[in-house]
Design a protein around this nucleic acid. Sequence first.
DNA 1: GCAGTGACCTCGT
DNA 2: AACGAGGCCACTG
Length: 110
Amino acid sequence: MGSINPPSSFYDSVWRVVAQIPVGRVTTYGDIAAHLGRRGAARIVGWALKDAVGGDLPCHRVVNRNGVLTGRRHFETPHVMAERLRSEGVTFVAEDQVDLDAHRWRPGKR
DNA sequence: GCAGTGACCTCGT
DNA sequence: AACGAGGCCACTG
């Protein structure tokens, strides 16, 4: 807050929202896209995260509508995503599926 | 400027 | 209920 910067592109907006995800919480692509005003841009969110893998953005806290770690295969190693979420206290209902009902976070709430 | 891509979502059968 | 196909939008070559 305080200093706001105009988003250079849609990616910047996504990265900004993802960077505000608290620890131990997860969000979905559709929620981010909807928060940005683009419901059909859910795929673009994934693209932005792909460019953010290896950066300082908690891309592992973004899951699909089912809570499945769809992007784990794009990480350095497939198990990194789940390991990180578990390390933050996120519960799993399956090997590659997190409990959305327990850690669902919505953008804008910081 | 055109075409291809893709870590999704929704609808139809 | 489960499976398949299409649509959508923004970025890169």
